[in-house]
């Protein structure tokens, strides 16, 4: 700390600007320039968000189906294979709280929306709604025009790079340095997304079954009670807006399925039954143990690759087209 006895005080505002303000401004000029350049560069990287945002802006009037969920849904539903005009607005670690905020932001902008698809996978009701992904709020604001900040926004809220420098630096390096650009279709679905644990293990069943996996087995009845009540509110909202609801859970592989906590699974199923009793028109597509999915349809235990996504999306399309 500076010596309090030493007199370095300045009384004139001009002198403050000259002796302190100016050096600070000069110091920060390169920082601001670099941050601006990074922001522009990040904005030019094609991502699921930017492509889905473009699709939303162009097709809003004709969208009939909106799909919400986490990375499991992002990897499992290729909206281009659904015969109705569909928006897949899922993203990694996106839980029901974000789904609901997005739905509320979309519902008035999609005059032809008839069906919403929600995810209720194995652990969904006992995993707390996450708030740590709030760096996505600028992404949603910038690309979807949806305010999930719980407050009035400022132009600064749309800046992507500063919302999560670490994440977006990685994106920048991936795009501009390593040139590892994913290929997307116009619905934001990643077409070459085969990389994953299963490919790394050459789809060797023995190795896959012995490979450790990351799965939530934490039982939490408090979380279940909260999440189930929250989800019921979502169903009520859809009901009030005349929207049909489909609940899906995509296929998961044997190594994942056998490690699921049976209590969590039972409670999930009984909660779904209770919700169906309250809203009997809601339809289900639970494909977790569907034997038609082969090891080569997966990226890892709980994420499909594009081959698996094609199969699952066709199942979903078939359900959407039945009355």
């Amino acid at each position: 700390m500076p010596d309090p006895k030493k007199n370095s005080s300045i009384s004139s505002f001009k002198a403050i600007l000259k002796r302190f303000g100016l050096p600070v401004v000069i110091f920060f000029i390169p920082v601001v320039i670099i941050a601006t350049v990074l922001e522009v560069m990040v904005g030019k990287i094609p991502s699921t968000y930017s492509i889905v945002g473009d699709y939303l802006n162009k097709e809003a009037a004709d969208i009939e189906v909106a799909v919400f969920g986490s990375s499991q849904i992002k990897n499992s539903v290729d909206a281009s294979l659904i015969s109705k005009n569909t928006l897949n607005i899922s993203s990694s670690a996106q839980h029901h709280n974000t789904d609901f905020e997005l739905l509320k932001g979309l519902v008035d902008r999609l005059p032809n929306l008839k069906t919403v698809v929600f995810e209720v996978s194995y652990g969904h009701f006992e995993i707390p709604h996450n708030s740590k992904y709030y760096w996505k709020r600028p992404v949603f604001l910038k690309y979807y025009g949806i305010n999930t900040f719980d407050r009035a926004t400022t132009p600064a809220d749309s800046l992507l790079y500063m919302s999560h420098p670490g994440f977006f630096t990685k994106q920048l390096l991936g795009h501009y340095v390593k040139d590892s650009l994913p290929q997307f279709n116009r619905h934001g679905f990643e077409l070459n997304n085969y990389k994953g644990r299963f490919k790394k293990l050459n789809y060797d069943l023995q190795k896959i079954l012995n490979d450790p996996i990351n799965i939530s087995r934490r039982e939490s009845k408090e979380t279940l009670a909260y999440n189930a009540a929250y989800f019921k509110d979502m169903l009520a909202f859809c009901n009030n807006h005349g929207l049909e609801v489909v609940i899906i859970s995509p296929p998961t592989f044997a190594n994942y399925n056998e490690k699921r906590d049976q209590n969590i699974l039972k409670r999930r199923d009984s909660t779904l039954q209770a919700l169906l009793a309250a809203y009997p028109e809601v339809r289900l597509l639970i494909s977790e143990t569907d034997p038609r999915y082969m090891v080569t349809d997966f990226r890892n235990g709980n994420h499909l690759n594009p081959d698996g996504a094609e199969k699952f999306t066709k199942q979903l399309d078939s359900l959407l087209n039945t009355n």
Binding site: M1, P2, D3, S9, I10, S11, I16, F20
Partner: peptide, 12 residues
């Protein structure tokens, strides 16, 4: 309070 240059620099 008078602006103290050293204090402000140290603050930054």
């Amino acid at each position: 309070r008078k602006f103290d240059l050293d204090l402000a620099k140290d603050g930054l």
